[in-house]
Design a protein around this nucleic acid. Structure first.
Lengths: 121, 121
DNA sequence: GTTATAATTAACTATTGAGTTAATTAAATA
DNA sequence: TATTTAATTAACTCAATAGTTAATTATAAC
């Protein structure tokens, strides 16, 4: 997985990691704080790995304080995702009515440019 | 990967698939239309698989027309992602100034509730 | 009916991801 | 200095991904 955006999406594609982000959105937390809700289901090293995924994706930062590792959300990390989403806003926003009109606009533009499309060879 | 949102994020965590979505945002396209930009780098079955991932994640719909399979973006598919993102808006929006204040609010609330936090046992 | 086109399925390989247990590092404390 | 606490690293397993080539299905066209 070469690119940054793919790395970010991949990091978000796991409910445990999203739960950790949700916890961090309430404020800084140590690894063991973050681990607590999951220790019935997974080991501490598993938690460490999840946090490493989040850190490498640039979604959190981990610092050192004695033997603890306070983590926090990295502001701006989701900006790239938000920007990517923006391109598709018209496809998920409430007013689906506009979508048909929008697509016709795009199609008309394409025809005007003389671009071939459809199944012609 | 049990949950829907994880499936969607996983589908988006690949540049080839995102490029296909970008193409589809310009209008309907067949499998071979979608494949064309990638056939130097990958086989047609690989393309089919990518499209299956997108379809299973609910991001596109594929229909039948003779031997062609016209695909289009599925409106509303990214709504769940958008809703999830919304929770974190304050963390990626331009005014990082507010973030500090926000986190203090959250922390204050937590203290007021008497929730233990930090590294106390 | 044979051939060409569009796309999928089958069977397989290689890599990555998520998890494990056991061992290790590093700091605080008794 | 020995012990406890916090977290990571090592080494391994298992399952899922992303890709391959070869074979197959289905429709259209000659």
């Amino acid at each position: 997985m070469r690119d940054r955006l793919s790395q970010t999406f991949a990091a978000l594609a796991d409910p445990t990691r999203r739960a950790m982000l949700a916890r961090l959105s309430k404020g800084e937390a140590n690894v063991s704080d973050l681990a607590r809700p999951f220790l019935k289901n997974m080991s501490l090293p598993a938690v460490t790995k999840h946090l490493q995924v989040l850190e490498k994706a640039g979604l959190i930062t981990k610092t050192r304080e004695a033997q603890w590792r306070p983590c926090k959300l990295k502001p701006g990390a989701l900006k790239d995702v938000a920007d990517w989403m923006e391109e598709y806003r018209i496809f998920w926003e409430e007013s689906f009515d506009r979508l048909g009109a929008y697509l016709e606009t795009v199609t008309a533009k394409k025809k005007a440019q003389g671009k071939k499309h459809g199944r012609t060879k």
